[in-house]
Simulated assay, not measured.
Amino acid sequence: MAKTAEVFAQRWTPLLVRELCFGPLRFTELHSGVPSMSRALLVQRLAELEEAGVIATEPMGQGKLYRLTSAGESLRDIIVLMSSWGQRYGQGRLGPADMDPTMLVWSMKRQIDPCQLPDRDIVLRLEFRGLPKAHAARRYWWIILRPNDVEVCFKAPDCEVDVVIAADLEALIRVWMGYAGLAEASQASAVSLHGDPMLVRAVKRILGLADEPHHRTLTFKAHAAVAA
């Protein structure tokens, strides 16, 4: 246990392993998953994990691709257990540091099951209220749900929006995490969905926005691409 803690129990390290559970990533992609971590510390932690045999690198264009080794893959069960514990016992600990729209949208994208994707493109716009001052510039986001891909944009794409989710940031975080139900949040005008009813239902299903609170189980694996 002590030897595991020496490698795994440093600040940010479990989150880096979590990111790499979704598949090999470039440095910028890793940093997007842990945006509050400084780039200098990210470089340091990656070097430590590589030295410990948890990750390996391979050349990728002008940079590197980071991936889990077999030792790193063995930590996946710990990540799943930590996630389950936090889902069950940590919901009352949401604080200002958790009010990050980037983390929410990034998490939404990673948890979308390719088997749930629509048979046509659906463009979703997210409009957040109640953002901390540090994140005020990230009020608007777009998610393009394609039959074989999911794209996240923080600049308006050149296509028509099908569904709009307008929400208090904290309220949508709680609904997406399963801590609160969409029905109650909608009744309180904290979260609202607008658009064609059929497409709204599809977005709710794809994002896993349930009408009632529930224990959401998160997955930590790379999804295979879906054939068009």
Rank of each mutant, 00 (worst) to 15 (best):
M1T: 14
K3W: 10
K3Q: 12
T4K: 13
A9S: 11
Q10T: 03
R11Y: 05
W12Y: 14
L16D: 01
V17I: 15
R18D: 04
R18F: 07
F22D: 02
F22Q: 05
G23H: 03
L25E: 04
L25F: 07
S32D: 15
P35G: 07
S36I: 08
S36A: 15
S38G: 07
R39G: 06
L41S: 13
V43S: 15
Q44C: 03
Q44S: 06
L49P: 02
E51G: 10
G53Q: 04
V54I: 15
I55P: 03
A56S: 12
P59D: 05
P59C: 04
P59A: 05
L68F: 03
L68E: 00
T69Y: 05
E73I: 07
S74R: 13
L75S: 01
D77V: 15
I78G: 02
I79P: 00
L81W: 11
M82G: 08
S83C: 08
G86F: 12
R88P: 06
L94R: 05
G95Q: 14
D100C: 11
D100P: 03
V105G: 00
M108E: 01
M108Y: 01
K109H: 09
K109N: 06
R110T: 03
I112N: 03
D113Q: 04
Q116C: 12
D119C: 06
I122M: 06
V123I: 09
V123G: 01
R125T: 04
L126E: 01
E127N: 08
K133E: 13
R138N: 06
Y140D: 08
W142C: 04
I143R: 00
D149H: 13
D149F: 14
E151A: 13
C153R: 08
F154P: 03
P157W: 10
D158T: 10
E160Y: 11
E160F: 11
V161F: 03
V161R: 02
D162N: 09
I165T: 02
I165R: 01
D168P: 07
A171M: 09
L172P: 01
I173W: 02
R174W: 02
R174F: 02
R174D: 00
W176F: 09
G178Y: 04
E184I: 07
A185R: 00
S186M: 15
Q187K: 14
A188V: 08
A190K: 07
A190G: 09
A190P: 05
G195V: 02
L199T: 05
A202S: 14
V203W: 05
K204R: 15
I206F: 09
I206S: 01
I206G: 00
G208C: 10
L209V: 01
A210V: 12
D211L: 11
E212I: 09
H214W: 15
H215Q: 14
R216P: 01
T217P: 06
H223I: 04
H223K: 07
H223S: 08
A225Y: 11
V226E: 07
A228V: 14
